[in-house]
Simulated scan of single mutants.
Amino acid sequence: MYKRVLLKLSGEALAAGKGFGIDAVFIHKIAAEIAAVHAAGCEIAIVVGGGNFFRGVAQQAIDMDRVAADHMGMLSTVINAIALQDAIEKLGLFCRVMSAIEMHQVAEPYIRRRAMRHLEKRRIVIFAAGTGNPYFSTDTAASLRAMEIKADVLLKATSVDGIYSADPKLDPTATKYEEISYMDILKLNLRVMDQTAVSLLKDNNLPSIVFSMKVPGNIVRVVNGEKLGSLIIP
C-alpha cells in the first residue's frame, strides 16, 4: 500500500521489557520484519529512540542541565541505531546510519538529499541523534524526517496496540480509538506523542499509524494496508 514509510521505534522497545540495554534476540526479530518490508518493495527509513539508555527528561537526569542531558539522550539513540544497522546488515541488506550530530567514524552526517538518494537506491536508512537539538524528542525528529523524505506515512511502533483514552496498563476502562484526528489528540491531551510532533504532522497533513510491535509481523501488515492499531488523520 505504501511506497515509502518512516518507522519510529522506541528505545524501550529494543530493550524488550528488560528496561535497560538492548535485547539481542528481539532486535534481530525487528530486523527480520524490516527486511520483509524492504523485500515487498517498500522504501523504509527508521528513527530510533534512546530511552533504554538515557532520556533527558528521565528521573536520573533531574539534577542535570537539560541541554547536557538531552545531548546524552541523543548519543544513546546512536548506540541503538548502530545495533539495529548491524542486525539488518547481517541479513545481507544495505543499511546506512545518518546522524544529526556529526561523528564521521560511526555514521554519516544527516544530509537530506543524500538520505533521499539512499532510499532511491534501495538502502535502508536509520536516522540517529534526534534533530541534533535539545528540547526536541525523537517523536518530533521522526515527524520532521518523515516530511523531509516525503514519506507516505509515519508508523509509530509502541508497546500498546493503539491510542487509548487513558493508559490501558493503568486504567482497564480506557477505550481505544480506531481513528482520531491530530486536533482531537491535542484537545484531549493524549500522550501518544509530544505536542510538537503532533502539531508538525497536523500542519503538514501527514497521516500516522500507532500500533503494537509486540505481535510478530505487525510491521509488514501495517505497510500492506491492514487495519491495525490507530490511524491518525490530518
Rank of each mutant, 00 (worst) to 15 (best):
C42Q: 07
A115S: 07
L200R: 09
T77W: 03
M116T: 14
M64F: 12
V67C: 11
F136E: 13
E179N: 07
G41W: 03
I219T: 12
L188Q: 12
V106M: 14
S76G: 12
C42R: 04
G56C: 06
T138V: 04
S137Q: 13
G217C: 10
S230D: 05
I62M: 06
R4G: 01
V160E: 05
K214P: 06
D171T: 05
N224S: 12
K227F: 00
F127V: 13
G162S: 03
P207F: 09
L7R: 06
Q60M: 14
A39I: 02
V192H: 00
S159E: 08
S99V: 09
H71D: 05
A87F: 07
I149V: 15
M74D: 08
A31T: 05
V153Q: 09
H104K: 15
E148Y: 00
R113H: 06
A39W: 01
E108T: 06
L228P: 00
G56I: 01
S181D: 09
A146L: 02
G229M: 07
A13K: 02
C95G: 14
S10H: 09
D203T: 12
D184G: 06
Q60P: 03
L9Y: 02
D139P: 09
A61M: 08
V125G: 11
A115P: 03
I124T: 15
M213I: 15
A107Q: 10
K156F: 00
E148I: 03
L231C: 08
A68G: 02
H28N: 13
R145T: 07
I46R: 01
M98T: 14
D23E: 10
G51T: 11
Y110P: 15
I232L: 11
F54K: 02
L144R: 06
F211W: 09
G130Y: 08
R114A: 13
M103A: 15
F26M: 06
I44L: 13
A36G: 03
I233K: 15
A68Y: 08
Y135F: 15
A36I: 01
E33S: 01
